[in-house]
């Protein structure tokens, strides 16, 4: 089961490695990202960021969905990461056992040349496509929220999207 699906364009980094894996008590981390799954340098940096004692799996989004739906993983608390909302939506639409989706950090450092972006809260900067995916995400029957670090309050994405 997925204890939390986090959308974070830095994938595994300080906030995630140090704080969230402890908070969520998840022995397994799954990075669902097509680029990472095919890029050995990215894999190396993700392995370096993984805390001691935690298992890491790096898979394309489609292969990660197979892992999440594998009956062997039913009792295992997994921490799933994508770096964009579109990938998270695909996982949410194809995996039934997700406790919550945390849309934490997206697009703030992305190339701004590709058209207009939409600011949602202080840590989300979304393209048209990502904004549409986020709206779809909130229609599913899963809690969708933003909480950058555990000491922050959980903010509902649906209420952040009002008037967008």
């Amino acid at each position: 089961m997925i204890a939390q699906l986090r959308v974070d364009d830095r994938l595994i980094h300080g906030q995630v490695a140090l704080v969230w894996t402890k908070e969520l008590d998840t022995p397994g981390i799954v990075v669902a990202n097509d680029n990472a799954a095919s890029n050995e340098m990215v894999q190396m940096t993700l392995k370096m960021a993984t805390p001691t004692g935690k298992k890491l799996l790096i898979r394309s989004v489609d292969d990660a969905i197979k892992v999440f739906n594998n009956p062997k993983g039913k009792g295992m608390r997994m921490f799933a990461l994508t770096n964009n909302v579109t990938d998270a939506l695909k996982i949410a639409q194809n995996v039934s056992d997700i406790d919550g989706i945390n849309v934490a950090n997206v697009g703030r450092f992305a190339d701004k040349s590709e058209g207009e972006t939409h600011q949602v809260g202080s840590t989300l900067m979304l393209s048209d496509k990502e904004l549409a995916a986020l709206k779809e995400l909130t229609k599913l029957d899963i809690p969708v929220f933003q909480q950058v670090v555990p000491s922050n309050p959980k903010s509902s994405i649906a209420s952040m999207l009002k008037n967008k």
Binding site: G28, V30, M44, K47, M48, K55, L56, L57, I58, K66, V67, N70, K72, G73, M76
Partner: peptide
């Protein structure tokens, strides 16, 4: 000193889910 991790083994789905 930062060096590339020597343990470069990739987990299979099965060993991850064990």
């Amino acid at each position: 000193l930062v060096e590339e991790p020597k343990d470069d083994t990739d987990l299979s789905d099965d060993s991850f889910l064990e």
